[in-house]
Simulated scan of single mutants.
Amino acid sequence: MICTLCPRECRAERTDTKPGGVCGQPSAPVVAKAMLHQWEEPCLVGVHGAGCVFFSGCNLRCCFCQNGVLSREGFGKPITVERLRQIFHELIDQGAACLDLVTPTHFTPAILEALGDEKWPVPVVWNCGGYEKAETIRALDGKVQVYLPDFKYALPDVARRYSGAADYFERSTEAILEMYRQTGPYVLEDGLLKRGVLIRHLLLPGQLENTRRCIDWVAEHFAPGQVLFSLMSQYTPQPGATGNLARHVTAAEYRAAAQYMENCGITDGYTQERTSAREEYTPDFDLSGV
């Protein structure tokens, strides 16, 4: 295919075996790990964990990504659509509370084929970086029950510096509104998210104003009871990081962000303990489950 799945619209030729584009991946799935993951938000984990499938490649390639071995280096194993569907069933058989598809956008056609017309017994979660085309999200209508987008940036200069995506805010907000159009207000049953949008925002060191502007947009567009919001403190400096990115978020920064979130009336969601900023919370991508 000539790929226009994401806002990059790089029009790279990607076939089942030929990688290309910003994501650097073929059109057939490449997966680094499939597992029951305990470190997602509680409403996705349940008793046994979220059934995570970690796809390789990314259209953002953020310089601070803690999964850089996947997003920038493209580590993973090529598999067929049929095998991907088997993995979904295996995770469900292990007790997964959901099918958590991590960084899936560049494999959208293959994932849709793997999901097929089956009525899955757990929610399908689209766990993405937020830099999405609303058109691509519309193609998922009826196949995805829970959207889990990052909402990284409201300030174009920060988005350009860290992810080379100055238009991130415009594209992510268009996509989030389409996600909400599909799901409507979130639905929790016995503490588990069955339907809805859970917006994640990672506070970056030295970027409190960017966080405030992201919170402003969410508060202006959604009333209480409509979406969930997760304010994350787990930023972990990566090798070679410089400037503010070479340090963790301070306790004062995170307290200020959480207070601003509360002051804006966002009470449906999650905050994190600063102990979340640990390298051990990043899975060991060893091809297990693939």
Rank of each mutant, 00 (worst) to 15 (best):
W39T: 05
I215A: 14
A251M: 06
F169K: 10
L112M: 12
A32E: 04
Q25P: 09
V158Q: 11
I2C: 12
L177E: 12
L245H: 14
S288P: 10
L245W: 13
C3L: 13
K152I: 09
V31Q: 00
M1Q: 10
W126H: 00
E262I: 07
R171W: 15
W120R: 09
A96K: 07
V125L: 03
E135W: 11
C62D: 13
H89C: 07
Y281D: 08
S233N: 04
D100H: 01
L188H: 11
L99V: 08
L204T: 03
A251G: 14
L115K: 02
L36S: 04
G21F: 06
P29S: 05
C23G: 06
L84E: 14
S233C: 09
I215V: 13
A251N: 10
P78G: 05
I215W: 15
L155A: 11
I79V: 13
P42W: 07
F88K: 05
C58P: 03
E253T: 11
T103V: 08
R195P: 00
V45M: 01
L148D: 01
L198R: 06
L188I: 10
D117Y: 09
T173A: 02
G24P: 01
M261T: 15
R72M: 15
E170Y: 06
D117N: 11
E273R: 10
P109E: 06
L60Y: 12
S163A: 15
R138A: 10
P78W: 07
R85G: 04
L231F: 15
H248P: 04
P224H: 00
A159D: 05
N59T: 06
L193A: 03
G57M: 13
E118N: 02
S288L: 12
T105F: 09
Y281S: 08
Y162K: 08
G225Q: 01
A277S: 13
L202M: 11
L193R: 08
E9T: 11
G225M: 04
Y162D: 15
Y153E: 10
P149Q: 05
A114K: 12
L228R: 04
V187W: 06
N244C: 14
A12D: 05
V218K: 07
F169G: 14
C63G: 07
P205D: 07
I111A: 01
Y186T: 02
M1G: 15
G289S: 14
A50M: 04
Q145F: 02
Q182N: 11
F55P: 04
Y186W: 10
T236F: 15
L140W: 06
R72P: 08
F55H: 04
W217C: 02
V144N: 00
R200V: 04
G164E: 06
G129K: 03
Y180M: 00
G196L: 05
L44G: 00
Q25E: 15
I2W: 01
K18D: 13
L70E: 09
A28I: 08
C10E: 05
L148E: 00
V53Y: 01
P283R: 00
P42G: 12
S230L: 09
T80R: 02
Y254F: 12
F169M: 15
E280G: 11
L5A: 03
E9D: 07
Q226L: 02
N263G: 13
K119P: 02
I137F: 03
G289V: 12
A251Q: 13
S172N: 15
A246K: 05
E13H: 13
Y162L: 15
A32R: 06
H37E: 03
S172L: 08
V53R: 05
P78F: 12
G164H: 03
D286K: 14
A252I: 07
V290Q: 02
F64I: 07
M35C: 12
